[in-house]
Each structure stands twice: as C-alpha cells, then as structure tokens.
Design a protein around this nucleic acid. Structure first.
Lengths: 114, 114
DNA sequence: ATATAATATCGTAAAATTACGATAAAGGTA
DNA sequence: TACCTTTATCGTAATTTTACGATATTATAT
C-alpha cells in the first residue's frame, strides 16, 4: 500500500485569470458607484426607459413606473450623482437622457478590467 | 417683431443612443444582482484580491482586509450568491476563486447592452 | 399678481445592508 | 476521544436604502 504519499494540496491548478480588475483610486470609486446605481431593479428600468425615450421628462417616468413621484425623483438623483444620466431643465420640467460620455467611459473601463 | 412663433420644444435633438440595454427577465435580474454585488467597495476589493490570489482561503482575505471574519464571510456569500465567485471546500478551509464561466457571461452581457 | 404645472427636497417610517462578537459546524490532528 | 483550525451562521446594533406624503421651488400661463 501507500504507493504515493498523500499530497495535501494539489487541488489547485491556478486558473488563468478570466479578468484583471486593474483599476484603483478614484476611477475604482467611480466605477463602484456606477455598479451600485445599476444594481437596483427600479433604477435599471429607468435606464432602459431612457434608451427608448431620450429626453423624456420626470413625469413620463413616473407614469411608467408603479412608484411615487418622490421616489422616482430620488432614483433619478442617484443615477445623476453616479453620472449615468443627465437632467436638462426645460421650463418647469426636466428632460432626462443617458449621459453618453460617462456611459462610454463605463463601457470602456468594464471592457478593460473584465 | 414676432418674426417667428416661439417653438416650444426644438430643444431635443434625439441623440443616437450610446447603448441599447436590451435585456430583460431572468437575465436582467441576474445582471442587476451582479451589479449590486460589485457595487460595494469591500466586495470589489475582494474580487481584486482573488484575481491575484486565486484559490486563497477565507483567512487570507480576512488578514488582508481590515474587517472582522464574520463580515468577510458575509461578503463572500453575497459574491457567491451573485455567481461571481466560487468556494471550494478543502478540509476545514474553503478555497475561493473567481467564477470564470459566470464572469465571462457578465462580460459578454455588459458588452452587448452597453 | 395669482394660479397652474412639474419636479426637487424634506421629514419620516420601513426594510435592507453592513458590521461585529459569539457560537456552531466540519475537518484534521494528537 | 479530545483538541485545534477554519469558516459559516446566529443574534443584534448601527447605518443606509427605499418609499411615501407633504411641502418648497421654479417656470409658465392667465
């Protein structure tokens, strides 16, 4: 018996990494904030709505979603603070659309690190 | 005066969309869950650590981070439930590594919709 | 000036997240 | 068996998030 000693840790063939996650500092903070903003079902729905309704006003989104106006406004603020959308004041209303430039940044960063 | 009537909404030149966000149902849920998991600074750090320390055990991460063991274990659970990492039990310890397949799915989905 | 419309903000309640110490569970060792 | 190691889970406190109604703000219309 005992043909070979029991190796106690071959178990791990280091896998070639599937991503590098090479990011840090303020860029990492910014990206994590964007992930967090996107990591809520309601906010993600707002993002989707804005793709097909660019320039729509807050009221349109309020009509579309089953939640109160104040709540929608709050979610819009989170998305704005994360830089994912832009609100352009037009009279008493506000036109919202995706923040093209920042979303391009997001796409590139995610592409680099994942 | 009044050379032209005041147009009350030219203001919006519909921008060509910078992304399509074409996703829904369970795939959307899954993706949003991943965004949420990544949207926390500590968890993002754990992901980064796993890139450079594949197969490390919980204790290694606990040493690396300035938070309690219970908290690390909780964060690992969130990442596991989101499918971002994998825990392989090895004796009394658990080896953690990124979930290659699911992260590849994540990369592709994000690439498609953003 | 007053009224109306649209939206942001305030105050607050409920729920979820984050963090910790203590304990339990599971595996290895003497 | 008893002990040690490692990690997950439990119970709980503090913080944050989510949601709402009410109110303030800003611009337009009368």
């Amino acid at each position: 018996m005992a043909i070979a000693t029991k190796e106690h840790k071959p178990k791990f063939i280091t896998p070639e990494p599937c991503c590098n996650l090479e990011i840090d500092g303020l860029e990492q903070e910014r990206l994590v904030t964007m992930f967090k903003a996107l990591g809520n079902p309601t906010r993600f729905e707002i993002m989707k709505y804005l793709v097909t309704h660019p320039g729509c006003i807050t009221g349109d989104i309020v009509e579309y979603l089953p939640i109160a106006q104040a709540t929608v406004s709050q979610h819009l603020k989170v998305l704005r603070d994360a830089g994912l959308i832009e609100g352009i004041i037009d009279g008493p209303a506000t036109n919202y659309c995706l923040h093209n430039e920042n979303i391009t940044w997001f796409r590139k960063k995610v592409g680099h690190i994942f």
